[in-house]
Amino acid sequence: NRRVIAMPSVRKWAREKGVDIRLVQGTGKNGRVLKEDIDAFLAG
């Protein structure tokens, strides 16, 4: 159960899209999950 680094707005975006943010690979600094990462995860 790893800790995910993400801005609150990104966490909210993931929740709205029904995405478990822990499954998303972050591409930002220090592995931070970005809004673009959520979109890419949804795109496959």
Rank of each mutant, 00 (worst) to 15 (best):
G44A: 15
F41E: 03
L34E: 07
V4T: 07
K12R: 14
K29E: 11
G18Y: 06
F41D: 02
K35S: 05
G31Q: 06
A6K: 03
F41P: 02
D39M: 10
D37F: 02
S9G: 10
G31M: 05
W13E: 08
I21A: 02
N1E: 12
R3G: 10
S9M: 09
G28Y: 00
G26M: 00
W13T: 07
A43P: 05
L23W: 10
L34C: 08
R15E: 12
V10P: 01
V19I: 10
V24I: 12
W13A: 09
F41R: 04
K17F: 07
L34T: 11
A40W: 09
R15L: 13
K35I: 09
I5W: 08
N1R: 12
R11E: 05
L34W: 04
K12S: 08
A14Q: 01
I5M: 09
R15G: 06
L34Q: 07
E16F: 14
V19R: 02
S9H: 12
V4I: 13
R32P: 00
V33L: 04
Q25K: 14
D20N: 10
D39Y: 07
G18P: 01
N30L: 11
V24M: 04
G26T: 03
R15A: 13
R32L: 08
R2W: 07
L23R: 12
V10E: 04
S9C: 15
R15F: 12
G44E: 14
V4L: 08
V19C: 05
A6C: 06
V4E: 04
G26H: 03
N30Q: 10
K35R: 12
K12N: 08
D37C: 02
V10M: 03
W13L: 14
G18Q: 07
K35V: 07
G18H: 08
E16H: 10
D37L: 02
A43G: 10
R2L: 12
V19S: 01
A14Y: 03
V24W: 02
D39P: 01
E36N: 10
L42K: 07
A43H: 11
A40I: 08
A6M: 04
A6Q: 03
V24Q: 01
V4K: 07
G31C: 07
D20H: 04
S9Q: 10
L34A: 04
N1H: 14
S9E: 11
V33I: 15
L42V: 14
V10Q: 01
G44Q: 15
N30R: 12
V10K: 01
I5R: 11
G31W: 04
N1T: 15
M7R: 15
M7D: 15
R15M: 12
R3K: 14
R32H: 07
